[in-house]
Simulated assay, not measured.
Amino acid sequence: MNKWQKITNKIALIVVLMLSSCSVMFAQSKKSNPFYYTELSEQADYKHIDFSSEYKEWLIPDSSERFEDITHELLGNGYTFERALFNSERFTYEDMNGKPLYYKETSFNGILGDKYARIEIFIHPEVERMDSLTFKVNGKSKVEENICDFTGEIHIEHIYNVWERVNDPDSPNYYVMVCNYLFTEDKAQYGTGFFKGTYGAYCYIDKANKMIRLDIDVGGGEFNKRNYVGIWQSYKTKAVKRCVWGDYRMPYTFDFDIGSEDMRINPKYNSPEWEQWQYEMHNPKEKNRWWKTLRKEVSHETDR
Rank of each mutant, 00 (worst) to 15 (best):
G200P: 08
K187L: 02
N180L: 01
I154E: 08
G139D: 12
G139H: 00
E153N: 15
K142R: 11
V166Q: 14
A188M: 02
I147L: 09
D170L: 15
F194T: 04
Y175S: 06
T184I: 01
Q189F: 07
V137Y: 03
I154N: 07
Y160D: 09
F150A: 10
H155R: 14
D170T: 14
H155S: 11
V178N: 03
N173L: 06
Y174H: 09
E164Q: 14
Y160W: 07
T151W: 04
Y175I: 08
K142L: 01
A201S: 13
P169D: 07
E164T: 15
C179F: 07
I156H: 05
V162I: 15
N146F: 06
T198Y: 07
K196F: 09
Q189M: 11
K140F: 09
Y204Q: 12
C179D: 00
I154D: 03
L182N: 03
V166Y: 12
S171A: 13
P169E: 14
G191N: 10
T198V: 10
Y174C: 11
F195C: 02
A188K: 05
I159Y: 08
I154S: 08
G200M: 04
E144V: 09
I205G: 06
K140P: 02
A188V: 08
D149P: 07
H155F: 01
A188F: 04
D168W: 13
K140G: 00
N173I: 11
Q189E: 10
Y204L: 03
M177S: 01
D168F: 12
D149V: 09
E153D: 14
I156L: 08
D168T: 13
Y181C: 07
S141N: 14
E153V: 12
T184M: 08
Q189R: 02
K140N: 09
N138K: 12
A188G: 00
V166H: 14
E153H: 10
C148L: 12
K142T: 04
I147M: 08
G152F: 10
N161Q: 15
